[in-house]
Computed example of a mutant assay.
Amino acid sequence: METQADKTHTCGTICLKYLLFLFNILFWLAGGAVLAVGVWTLVEKSDYISLLNSGFYSASTYILIAAGVIVIVTGIIGCCATLKEMRSLLIVYLILLLCIFLLEIIAGVLAYINYQELDEELRQNLKVTMQQKYQQPGEESVTQAVDKLQQEFKCCGSNNFSDWTDSVWIQAADNERLVPDSCCKTPTDLCGRRDHPSNIYNVEGGCIMKLEDFILSQLYILGAVGIGIAFLQLVGMMFTCCLYQNLKEDPY
């Protein structure tokens, strides 16, 4: 005959199972969000990679996608371990949670350090890249990235439109333009022949400021998502330890 203590213990175990299962659903959704942000960044913003000498931006995007996949897989393992009450699988799940938590801390520190270097690199190289590689043979990816950057962020030149004065392409004898057509507020063929502010974008700080703001906003988003997932992980690790202890004491 089941004692009152056994009933209470069983009820506590069931509650822990449901709490941990709910946590895993949230964790799985968070992993999906991280994966979605990584894929969106890779698909929509990958053109800007060609404007940077560093591979940090592209590497961070792939790391983000990998992290999303790992979180989703970990969530699935957690659901299986919880529903089947497998103590060995709970240990694997707990270790995975701890590893992801530590990796998030390391990734956060590296992202902050690398952003400082990326920002400095951007300021040093964007102007030269635009002037030396735009519309040059074999540099189609740079040309496409510059045009997209200027149209999407409504800017012209690295610091301002006058940067294009020293462009190899602008200085070519057969070029009638003062700035690329992508600088124009209403892009049309040869609209870059006029560099008056009424015709082209003349933003204070130029495209460098716009691109810096974009990268910084991406880091803020990743930081917020990372903090949210880290909080979920701490809760999940606590629930996992409690459930493991209860299952260990359950008679079979």
Rank of each mutant, 00 (worst) to 15 (best):
I95H: 08
V92Y: 07
T41R: 04
I65V: 15
A66H: 04
L97F: 06
G108W: 00
I65T: 04
I65H: 05
V43F: 12
V39N: 01
E104D: 14
M86K: 14
S54M: 07
L64H: 00
I77Y: 02
V37T: 13
N53G: 13
C99I: 12
I49Y: 15
V71E: 04
V69A: 12
L97S: 05
I100G: 03
L42Q: 09
V43L: 15
I106T: 14
I72A: 05
V92C: 14
L52K: 08
I76A: 15
L42S: 13
E85S: 13
C79G: 07
I100E: 05
V34T: 12
I91H: 11
Y48K: 04
G55C: 05
C80E: 03
W40T: 13
V39R: 00
W40M: 12
G38T: 02
E44I: 07
A66Y: 06
A59L: 14
V69N: 05
I106W: 04
V69L: 13
I65W: 06
C80Q: 06
W40R: 07
L98P: 02
G68I: 04
A59S: 14
G108M: 00
A67R: 02
I49S: 10
A81H: 02
L51Q: 01
A36R: 01
A59K: 08
A66C: 09
L42V: 07
L89P: 03
E104N: 14
A67S: 10
V43T: 14
W40I: 12
A107F: 07
G38P: 02
V34I: 15
F56K: 04
L83Q: 09
